[in-house]
């Protein structure tokens, strides 16, 4: 995944398919090693988290986005800037909870699941669970504690992929001095 600003001319650009294949074989290998859907979900989440805590700096360094003052703004930035920059797609933000602390990201063409057919007996596996971890990690670094999980998954026969985010709390202790 190369950065968006230089995508057209970046000679280091790799094919999206190669990326999808790499991710697919990674999940397949995890399944072989752990033989347990929940454990694989956990591992993917952990990997995603480690990506998120690093990727956030790249995001901030290049996007010129300031601090979000409410969760709706956060939702917009994730969908319109973050996903666009790193996955080349813009999910729809929908299904807000009445309190405004929960929303869904609706994804129609999740590039991670191109070519994937889930074998029998893996109804608990969240194939793209790495996304949940990445979002959680990235938001934690900007002092927001969130929970992220899959509600719908096209791999399991749903019409689209739905990721749900819930705001838990602001990590006040971690807010650097001079911010806010």
């Amino acid at each position: 995944m190369s950065r968006q600003t230089t995508r057209a001319v970046d000679p280091r650009k790799v094919s999206g398919e190669l990326f999808t294949l790499t991710y697919g074989s990674l999940v397949a290998q995890l399944l072989k090693d752990y033989e347990n859907d929940d454990e694989v979900n956990k591992q993917l989440d952990k990997m995603g988290y480690n990506i998120g805590v690093r990727l956030i700096e790249d995001f901030l360094a290049r996007s010129n986005v300031g601090r979000c003052q409410d969760f709706r703004e956060t939702a917009d930035v994730i969908a319109k800037v973050g996903f666009k920059m790193y996955l080349g797609l813009t999910p729809v933000v929908a299904n807000w909870s009445p309190a405004g602390d929960e929303f869904s990201l609706l994804i129609e063409n999740n590039p991670l699941i191109d070519f994937v057919e889930l074998p029998e007996g893996h109804s608990h596996l969240n194939f793209s669970n790495i996304l949940c971890g990445a979002l959680r990690g990235a938001l934690e670094m900007v002092q927001m504690d969130v929970a992220v999980w899959f509600v719908q998954d096209q791999l399991k026969g749903d019409n689209l992929t739905e990721l749900r985010l819930r705001f838990i709390k602001r990590l006040e202790d971690a807010v650097p001095a001079g911010e806010d």
Binding site: I56, E57, L60, A61, G66, V142, A174, P176, E179
Partner: peptide, 10 residues
């Protein structure tokens, strides 16, 4: 001296 702090605190 010029300093800039990122949103993550670096």
């Amino acid at each position: 001296l010029t300093c800039s702090q990122t949103l993550t605190g670096i």
